Simulated scan of single mutants.
Amino acid sequence: MATTCLVVMGVSGAGKTTIAELLAERLGWQLAEADEFHPEANIDKMSAGIPLTDADRAPWLAAIRDWITTKDALGRDTVVTCSALKRSYRAILGEAESRVRFVFLSGGTELIASRLSRRSGHFMPPDLLGSQVGDLEPLAADEDGITVDISAPPSEIADTALRELGLP
C-alpha cells in the first residue's frame, strides 16, 4: 500500500512551515520544506522581487514530486510545505508514488500581509504576495484535500486538519 504525503499549501505567510512542523511531529512523519528544493536561480529571482513563472516552477515541483516518490519507496509517510498555488502544480505533485493530500491554508490577504511584514530572514519579499494571490487557485472539490482557515492558533489549525483528514 502506498504511503501518504500531506502537502501543506498556500501563499507565502499563510503558516505552511508552522503547520507542517506540527503535523509532522504529531504524526511522526518525515518533513520537507519546499523552499529547500528551489534552484538558486529561483531564489535569486524571488529575492529580487521578481515573481516566478510556470517554467521556473516546473523543475522545483518535479524535484518535490521525486522526493515524495523516493520516500514512498522507503515506506515513509511525509509532510511537505509547498505553495502549490495552481491546480496544474498540484497535478505534478500528485504524480508521486504516494497518496498526495493537500492541506490548503486559507486566509485573508490583510492577515497574511501583516504576518509577512513581521517575518525576517526569508528570501520571499512581502511585495510578491500580490502575485501569489493572483496565481492562487483554491482546491477544487475533486482534489484530495481540505481547506483550513488560518485565523485560529496553529495548534487548533493542526487539530482541525488532522480531524478533517481522518488522521490520528
Score class of each variant (00 low, 15 high):
Pro51Gly: 00
Gly166Ile: 11
Arg163Pro: 00
Thr70Phe: 00
Trp67His: 14
Thr160Trp: 00
Val103Cys: 02
Pro153Tyr: 09
Glu137Val: 11
Gly13Gln: 05
Thr160Ile: 03
Ile92Met: 09
His38Phe: 14
Leu136His: 01
Glu33Gly: 01
Glu97Trp: 00
Glu36Trp: 08
Asp56Pro: 04
Pro39Lys: 07
Val8Glu: 02
Thr53Ser: 15
Leu6His: 05
Asp72Leu: 01
Gly15Cys: 06
Pro168Gly: 10
Ser120Cys: 00
Val80His: 15
Arg118Gly: 12
Gln132Thr: 09
Ile150Pro: 05
Ile150Cys: 07
Gly49Lys: 08
Asp66Gln: 12
Ser120Lys: 08
Gln132Ser: 10
Ala34Cys: 14
Asp159Glu: 14
Asp144Val: 07
Val79Pro: 03
Ile68Trp: 06
Ala158Tyr: 02
Pro154Ala: 13
Ser131Tyr: 10
Leu139Pro: 09
Ser131Asn: 10
Ser114Leu: 07
Leu129Ser: 06
Gly134Arg: 14
Val100Glu: 10
Ile92Lys: 10
Glu164Cys: 01
Trp67Asp: 13
Glu97Ala: 05
Asp159Ser: 13
Ala63Leu: 04
Lys45Ile: 12
Trp67Arg: 13
Ser12His: 01
Gly166Ser: 14
Ser117Leu: 13
Leu105Lys: 05
Gly15Ile: 03
Leu167Met: 06
Pro153Gln: 14
Leu93Pro: 11
Ala48His: 00
Asp56Gly: 02
Ser47Met: 05
Leu52Asn: 05
Leu165Ile: 05
Glu143Val: 10
Leu136Trp: 03
Pro154Trp: 14
Ala2His: 13
His38Leu: 14
Thr78Glu: 05
Val8His: 03
Ala152Tyr: 04
Thr147Asn: 02
Ala161Gln: 02
Arg65Asp: 04
Pro125Trp: 08
His38Gln: 15
Val100Gln: 10
Cys82Pro: 08
Ser155Glu: 15
Pro154Arg: 10
Glu33Arg: 13
Val11Asn: 06
Arg26Val: 01
Gly75Pro: 07
Thr17Gln: 08
Glu21Leu: 13
Ala32Thr: 13
Pro126Ser: 07
Glu21His: 11
Ser117Trp: 09
